[in-house]
């Protein structure tokens, strides 16, 4: 790639979503969702339960097929891809962090095997190197190297979540989907995880789409925010602008309903 092409490539959105719509029979899952996500950006999606944020994330990550609209990743039409190509993307360039680490980890496989799986899936065939990378990534998410052969079932909730993140990031993905990654964790563990995720986003230049109902989490983590209600995006913008100067009545209600500590 020439320098010019590189510059052009970095000056376009990593993910381009247009008119994304998914219904469940007569019910709206999400409707007409349009946004661009740029390299290195964290996009928060907030809304109450049933607002369509999880449906949207599932459509983006390829777990659900939208009825209408388009998704372009790095210029490639995601919905036109074959399943092989899409799943290949899902274990190389993309990552998905589940709310419950049990959904994103293999509980019967050691921590090292969990982290190494994505490497082996893309053809790594040297045990020593795979193990070395697994240990390095565990260190990065602050799990001691001597736990490499322990199963995740022996880990605390916070450690499991960090292991899930390590498992996802080991192949250096560019786009990470996160579904309530701090839900169900103690607040002290939450803070640690938020700090870790901020550092990873900054150091690796990750683009992230994070779904949460926790406005404090998005304020600290997301550059931009989308507010969803009844399947529609009612407002989007800079995170602090949307939270401090909300324009839509629903956002105003949401922001004013947060309990202060």
């Amino acid at each position: 790639m020439t320098l010019m092409e590189t510059m052009v490539a970095t000056d376009r959105p990593l993910l381009k979503v247009e008119g994304l719509t998914k219904g469940y029979g007569p019910r709206i899952g999400c409707a007409g969702v349009t946004f661009d996500l740029w390299p290195g950006e964290v996009l928060g999606i907030v809304g109450e339960s049933g607002s369509g944020k999880s449906t949207l994330l599932s459509c983006l990550a390829g777990h659900l097929r939208p009825d209408l609209g388009s998704i372009h990743y790095d210029g490639r039409d995601v919905l036109a891809m074959g399943e092989t190509e899409r799943r290949c993307l899902g274990r190389t360039d993309w990552a998905y962090v589940h709310q419950n680490p049990r959904d994103g980890l293999r509980m019967g496989v050691s921590a090292g095997g969990n982290v190494g799986e994505r490497l082996m899936a893309i053809g790594a065939r040297h045990y020593g190197e795979i193990r070395g990378k697994a240990v390095a990534w565990m260190d990065r998410v602050e799990i001691a190297a001597d736990r490499v052969d322990d199963r995740p079932s022996a880990f605390s909730g916070g450690m499991q979540q960090r292991l899930q993140i390590a498992r996802n990031l080991v192949t250096s993905p560019r786009l990470v989907f996160m579904d309530e990654p701090t839900g169900g964790l103690d607040v002290s563990v939450q803070a640690r995880l938020l700090d870790l995720m901020r550092g990873l986003v900054r150091d690796l230049g990750l683009s992230v789409v994070i779904v949460t109902h926790d406005l404090a989490v998005v304020r600290l983590l997301a550059h931009r925010l989308m507010v969803m209600k009844s399947g529609h995006v009612v407002e989007q913008g800079l995170t602090d602008q949307v939270l401090d100067d909300p324009q839509h009545s629903y956002t105003q209600l949401l922001v004013s309903s947060v309990l202060q500590v």
Partner: peptide, 18 residues
């Protein structure tokens, strides 16, 4: 179908680790 056989090596990895 998709030739996703990384899991087979996870099994062997676990063997060596253990």
């Amino acid at each position: 179908e998709l030739e996703e056989y990384g899991l087979m090596h996870v099994k062997l990895y676990e063997d060596i680790a253990r």
